[in-house]
Amino acid sequence: MTTQARPPAPGERLLPLLLLVPAGVAVAEGVRLDGLASPSSPGAFPLLAGAVMAGSAVAIGASSWLRRGAARPVGGVSAVLPPRVAAVGGLFLAALGAMPWLGFHLAAFLLLVVSVRLLAGRGWLRAGLVAALSVAAIHVVFRLGFSVLLPAGVLFR
């Protein structure tokens, strides 16, 4: 469980540098809140958390450096973000962005239609049917059954 079983992902050598960013943010917040002045100040624990993050990032970097050349990263950007992950992820974010305007039902329907069509590779009619049934089921179970509020839109409620 602690062995490096997977091949390195593209950009893995840069990961420690990226991890140092949140570590730096936590350390800076800890210092701002007197973390260095008193161990019981509001900044003490953020400082400690930041220090652990920074130490871990350095350890990850050192481990990555020691294993350099052992295995080369597989693939490029598409290995990190394969087309169907990028497409569905993008559609999901677009649907969330559209929800305040279109409302939940229409935004979810559009997300489902396009995603199902894209992933299953079957006809639009079939995808539309699956999407309509899914949104209807969600409405019945959650809105009517559990009385859960669903996001309303400015254009369509």
Partner: peptide, 12 residues
């Protein structure tokens, strides 16, 4: 193809 988009909708 059906399950994953549905999970994303349920998450929201």
């Amino acid at each position: 193809a059906v399950l994953i988009p549905l999970i994303l909708v349920l998450c929201s």
